[in-house]
């Protein structure tokens, strides 16, 4: 569950990106974060990670306030997926996913039976078990993106944030990633929020849409959002 209470976000000396906005994204849903370029999607995601200071209000991830938490506390609540590729020569797909267990392992990252099990499950979930021992440099962009999602799954957090997870992907891969996310939200009860510019796909595949239209935030079902004034003003 992600809750925003009277949140104001922005940069000093400019109009705020969000002004006194509140909403609550329930667990077990896939929510798409949409908005024009520069509307503040990335800034909002950073605020959720605790790296963007709020000008007002409060964010709660379950019962945790990201602005007041350490990286270690946050890592138990929230995992993130970004678009960039990991550039590490000789790293295998399995090793990449294993790093997701880092917050749960000790000082030297020693893995135990439960950790290996979580990694195997995560790989299976994204359909990459057969490529587990391949080096990541040889994977396609779509496979790499699914692998990064598996890493987030291995981290075993109730909330997953994804910053344009379908950005570099072709249409079949976009659909595959989105339906994978939907499956995870519905069948594992995770709260998944992803930013995207793919309006059609977002509207058809997500449970909820979070639309930033400066300085307002609207959370609703795809149909509700589609008919809103702000959506029509932004995208029609």
């Amino acid at each position: 569950m992600i809750r925003l209470k009277d949140v104001t976000i922005g940069y000093k000396g400019t109009e705020p990106l969000l002004l006194n906005q509140s909403c609550e994204i329930p667990a077990g849903t896939l929510t798409a974060l949409i908005g024009r370029n520069g509307s503040g999607k990335s800034t909002l995601l950073r605020a959720l990670c605790g790296t963007q200071p709020l000008l007002g209000g409060e964010i709660l991830l379950g019962d945790l306030n990201p602005a007041k938490s350490t990286a270690a506390e946050l890592a138990s609540r929230l995992s993130i997926v970004t678009t960039g590729r990991v550039d590490a020569r000789h790293m295998t797909a399995r090793q990449l996913v294993e790093m997701g267990r880092a917050p749960l392992t000790g000082l030297f990252g020693r893995m135990h039976a439960g950790d290996y099990e979580a990694v195997d499950k995560a790989l299976e979930r994204v359909g990459l078990s057969s490529l587990a021992d391949r080096e990541i440099s040889g994977l396609s962009d779509g496979e790499h993106q699914r692998l990064m999602i598996a890493r987030a799954l291995a981290q075993d957090t109730p909330i997953i944030l994804l910053d344009e997870p379908t950005g570099f992907l072709d249409v079949p891969n976009r659909k595959a990633v989105t339906s994978l996310l939907k499956d995870l939200a519905h069948n594992q009860g995770k709260t998944i929020l992803y930013s995207t510019h793919e309006l059609d796909l977002a509207l058809s595949a997500s449970d909820l849409i979070l639309h930033i239209s400066r300085p307002n935030l609207m959370l609703g079902t795809p149909d509700e959002v589609k008919q809103s004034q702000a959506y029509i003003a932004d995208f029609r």
Binding site: C49, T51, T70, A71, A72, L74, A75, S76, L78, S79, I80, T82, M99, G100, A102, P103, Q155
Partner: peptide, 10 residues
């Protein structure tokens, strides 16, 4: 960004 999200105090 990812390192921090996995609990690293940078």
């Amino acid at each position: 960004v990812l390192a921090r999200s996995m609990g690293l105090d940078l």
